[in-house]
């Protein structure tokens, strides 16, 4: 599915300094019953965000109006657990375009890249600096520069570079997806398939 191109993103960020945030927290299974990709943002972090009677939990960060922005900053090992792409959809649909953490679970990272959310992995020290900067000023802005693969805390000027492979980077910059690429090499695929018994 096509998504918006990603170039340079400057935004304040929402901090979630918890480790091992799993996809069952990002979107609980009972919200996976849809047959279309719509409305998942409403249930992002559902059980941390709302009580069982659907009233908001005041202390949860998404319910705290002083935090906002297109960047979600999470603790180590973000996105572990299930392969549900719904988790990445919920993050995107809520309005985040980038997730920053010191470590990502594999499938979640891949899912993000496939739908136009940029996972930015930083060192534990830099992650700490980001959390501190947001704590000092919730409106503090981060700059995510994809062409240069650099993340900067604008208030202090501190920055760090991050990894992304050239192919995925190209996709994100241009808003392309893998299927476009694969459909273009279908001849090669068919040739391979002929040589492979079922």
């Amino acid at each position: 599915m096509a998504y918006d191109k990603f170039n340079i993103l400057t935004s304040s960020a929402v901090p979630l300094p918890i480790e091992n945030v799993d996809t069952d927290q990002i979107i609980p299974a009972r919200f996976l019953k849809a047959t279309e990709r719509k409305g998942f943002g409403d249930n992002l972090f559902r059980d941390w965000r709302y009580n069982s009677d659907d009233t908001p939990k005041e202390q949860f960060v998404l319910n705290n109006p002083i935090y906002s922005g297109k960047i979600l900053v999470g603790g180590k090992n973000f996105g572990s657990g299930s392969s549900r792409e719904h988790a990445a959809w919920a993050v995107y649909d809520y309005g985040f375009r980038c997730v920053v953490s010191s470590f990502f679970a594999d499938i979640f990272r891949g899912n993000c890249l496939n739908i136009g959310v940029l996972p930015v992995q930083v060192s534990p020290e830099f992650l700490d600096k980001i959390f501190k900067a947001i704590e000092a000023d919730p409106k503090t802005e981060l700059e995510i520069n994809l062409p240069e693969q650099k993340i900067t805390i604008l208030a202090t000027g501190e920055s760090e570079s991050f990894d992304i492979n050239d192919y995925k980077k190209g996709n994100m910059l241009n808003g392309f997806d893998d299927i476009d690429y694969l459909l273009n090499i279908q001849k090669d695929i068919e040739k391979y398939a002929e040589s492979t018994p079922l």
């Binding site: 599915m1 299930s82 549900r84 990445a88 499938i107 899912n111 496939n114 299927i179 694969l182």
Partner: peptide
């Protein structure tokens, strides 16, 4: 291995996925 829905779409349409070798 497990895949996300974009990849399910990839495999349905092209029988391939794109993955860096772990």
């Amino acid at each position: 291995f497990g895949i996300g829905t974009s990849e399910v779409e990839m495999v349905l349409s092209t029988q391939c996925i794109m993955q860096p070798k772990p």
